[in-house]
């Protein structure tokens, strides 16, 4: 049991939180900007590399420099929107998806060009796990991630539930047309969506980097699970994305637990396929997702 919790459940929770934070941005962009943003993963990658550079420059802990990295990532996202997405606002959706696909590669190339492709570390050194209740072993970095993720999720919740712009974001997620008719400032909501999405993406990336390492393909690797999480939770439902992310993260990690006998239930080489399988499953069974989001 301890083994299950320590080596499967907790990592699943961490991974799930990372997916969740990234998926919130994806689900809102999907419905407010009306397209699947393939470049979202690269916001994470870029954000991580910003954080890494800041860590190199200041010697501070990655979580300390993270807010600055988040600001930089937001600036990136807003510029990208202005230059590449805004001109296509009224174009057919597919053009935006193609554009985002192109931006995914462009951003990744920029990162690869400036920082190179070697693995980097944002929190070097091995850490001794803390013992909790003589039973659970949690490493300090996992604790940090879980706590920070919770703080961010709470902040998002607060934004969405108690602020005017947050409610406007939820309103526009429900129905962009009605939001426009109601007089909601749609451009403002669009900008807010980019800001929130990019900030969360940066954070998710930094958490992943803390947990593992820094590499240029991080964003792309997370893309499919994040999309799966958004769809699982119901497109346009930020809380759905949260739950969806957690489910997928847990499923991915737990899938390699030896439930039967000594062999992992699923060959760990196929972990990355778990998200996809869940997504296909939900698309077949209930395309609107768990929280009944939009189906297009």
């Amino acid at each position: 049991m301890a083994e299950f919790i320590n080596f499967y459940f907790i990592p699943g929770l961490i991974l799930g939180s990372i997916y969740a934070l990234g998926a919130i941005g994806i689900t809102m962009t999907f419905v407010i900007l009306r397209f699947a943003n393939f470049a979202h993963g690269e916001s994470m990658t870029l954000g991580v590399y910003f954080a890494w550079t800041l860590v190199q420059l200041t010697g501070l802990h990655p979580l300390v420099v993270m807010p600055i990295a988040m600001v930089l990532t937001v600036l990136y996202a807003l510029s990208i929107d202005r230059i590449f997405y805004k001109p296509l606002r009224n174009a057919p959706v597919v053009m935006l998806v193609v554009a985002s696909f192109g931006l995914m590669l462009m951003t990744r190339s920029v990162v690869q060009f400036f920082w190179g492709v070697q693995l980097k570390s944002v929190l070097p050194g091995i850490q001794k796990p803390i013992m909790v209740l003589d039973y659970l072993r949690i490493s300090p970095k996992h604790m940090m991630i879980i706590i920070s993720a919770l703080v961010l999720m709470f902040a998002v919740h607060y934004l969405l539930t108690y602020t005017k712009i947050g409610k406007a974001m939820r309103a526009m997620s429900d129905s962009p047309e009605l939001a426009r008719l109601t007089g909601i400032d749609t451009e403002k909501v669009v900008l807010a969506t980019w800001v929130v999405g990019a900030a969360l993406a940066c954070a998710a990336g930094v958490f992943l980097a803390i947990d593992t390492h820094v590499e240029t393909r991080m964003g792309f690797k997370l893309l499919l699970p994040m999309f799966a999480a958004a769809i699982l939770g119901g497109v346009g439902r930020p809380y759905g994305a949260l739950v969806g992310g957690l489910i997928i993260g847990l499923a991915e990690e737990i899938s390699s637990y030896p439930f039967i006998g000594t062999e992992p239930l699923l060959n760990p080489g196929y972990k990355a396929g778990v998200a996809f399988a869940i997504m296909i499953g939900i698309l077949i069974w209930r395309p609107s997702g768990l929280f009944k989001g939009k189906v297009f």
Binding site: F38, V93, F101, L223, L224
Partner: peptide, 10 residues
């Protein structure tokens, strides 16, 4: 179309 894009990448 977006869903197809995601699924095909998958």
């Amino acid at each position: 179309s977006d869903y197809l894009a995601i699924a095909t990448i998958g």
